[in-house]
Simulated assay, not measured.
Amino acid sequence: MIGRKVRKLVSGWLRLAVLSTVTLVVVVACTGNPEGESEVRELKFGVGPYFPTPSETRNQFEPLFQKMAASVNADADVTVTQDWVGISEALRSGTLDVAWLGPWGFVLAQHAEPSLEAIATVKYQGNPYYYSLLMTRADAPYNTLEEAIAYSQNQEQLKLSLADVGSTSGWLIPTAEFKQRNIDPKQVFDYNEGASHAAQAISVISNQTDIASDYNRNLDVLASTGKIDRSEIKIIWQSERLPNDPIAIRGGLPEKVKTGLRQAATNLSTEEAKDLLPENYTGFAASDGSNYKPIRQAGKLVGKLQ
Results as ranks from 00 to 15, higher is better:
V10Y: 12
Q153W: 03
V26F: 06
F284I: 08
E117M: 09
E56V: 02
A112R: 09
S169G: 11
F178K: 09
S167P: 09
G283K: 01
L276Y: 05
F65R: 04
S55R: 08
V204P: 07
I249L: 10
N267G: 03
N244H: 10
A112Y: 03
K8D: 15
S287F: 04
K304A: 14
G12P: 07
W100T: 02
G94C: 08
L134S: 11
E272A: 09
E279Q: 15
P294M: 04
F178H: 02
E271D: 14
G12F: 12
P278S: 01
L108I: 03
Y142K: 12
P243V: 05
R58G: 01
D190L: 13
G126A: 03
A248L: 04
L14G: 07
G126P: 03
A74W: 03
G12M: 13
S239W: 05
V302N: 00
E42M: 08
L305H: 04
T57G: 08
V72W: 07
T136K: 05
Y142M: 11
L9H: 12
S38G: 06
A163G: 06
Q297L: 07
A69I: 02
S38K: 04
G3E: 14
K227I: 09
V302E: 00
A76V: 11
N59L: 08
G303N: 06
I87C: 05
